[in-house]
Simulated scan of single mutants.
Amino acid sequence: MDPHLLRTFVTVARLASFSEAARELGYTQSAVSQHIAALEQDLGAPLLTRRPVTPTTAGERLLEHAGPLLLRLDAARADVARMAAAPQHGLTLATTPTGLGPAVLAALPPAGVTVRVLARAEIPAAVATGTADLGLVDGPAAPSDPLRLPDVAPLTTHGVAEEPVSVLLPTGHPLAGRAGLRLGDLADARWLDAPDAALPLAALRAANGGGALRSALRYEGTDLHTVTALAAAGHGLVLLPRSAAIAVPGTTAVPLTAPRLVHRTELLHGGAPGPAAAELVRRLVGGGEGVSSGPPGER
């Protein structure tokens, strides 16, 4: 398939408008219609209804493939451009809020770094497409187990830190005096669902053998202070790395004792990192070899 036609199709489907897609892409509306017609002829199936503009069943299936395909094309372009470009002196680091643990903060150079806090799912794509030189992803895992990351491009991963995790509770919570907590005993508790600012509730459910953990409030953002303030106000429990959970006003951090989980942080880069990025990799992982990423679970 012609990637230009595919990109036009994705844009029309996202905006639900031929005219808006033409404006965003810099084409005439007639050219956009011709692109869609050519793609439909190539695939032998209608992809969009016209009034209203919505994907057909075949179009929905194509959209599932189109996003990863276009991302891989952008990643390939960025990878080649990175090799051909002059060396950069600074670096851009994409990270989750909880990815900036003590080890990472101690390794950051005193100048020349731009830190971008992104949603977890956005970080591998940012590194693959060159909008970030390095990425920090994190999450709960069994000790020494790698994280499961999306297969967006050939990326190299390095494990850089592991630390214990704690459940953050309001100071007056009935369980705040416990020496430790088991996840299975908290199935009926009220939880905060903050997938991009705390450790994702979906990952905790998986670690709990698929057992339900009830979400009382969902926070869609990346501000860790907001999450801890919500927990302190009694809007739900939240699991955090120990370094982020201790000494939060109005809360008590109780270690999670079962299942055996740690907060794991991994560093991502594509190709050969530039001088500044390579120096940060050296500081964080030494001379150890990274692991090239493949499909999730096969790195």
Rank of each mutant, 00 (worst) to 15 (best):
M1K: 08
M1Q: 12
P3L: 14
V12S: 14
R14V: 14
S19C: 03
A21C: 02
A22H: 02
E24F: 09
L25V: 05
T28S: 11
S30R: 15
H35I: 06
H35G: 04
A37G: 04
L43F: 10
L43W: 10
P46W: 14
T49W: 11
T49D: 11
R50L: 11
V53I: 15
P55G: 09
L63Y: 10
L63I: 09
A66V: 05
L70R: 05
D74I: 06
A76S: 07
A78M: 01
M83F: 05
A84G: 10
A85P: 07
G90T: 12
T95W: 01
G101E: 01
P102R: 06
A103G: 00
L105N: 07
A111W: 12
E122S: 10
A128P: 01
T129P: 01
G130K: 03
T131F: 00
P143W: 12
D145R: 11
L149N: 03
T157R: 08
V160D: 06
A161K: 00
P164Y: 05
V165W: 01
V167S: 00
T171S: 14
G177C: 03
G177V: 02
G180V: 06
R182Q: 14
L183D: 04
D185R: 13
D188E: 15
R190F: 07
A203K: 04
A203S: 10
A207W: 06
G211A: 15
L217F: 15
R218V: 06
A229D: 14
R242I: 11
S243G: 12
G250A: 11
G250E: 11
T252R: 12
L256G: 12
T257D: 15
P259R: 02
E266D: 09
P275Q: 04
A276W: 00
L284W: 05
G290D: 06
P295A: 15
E298A: 15
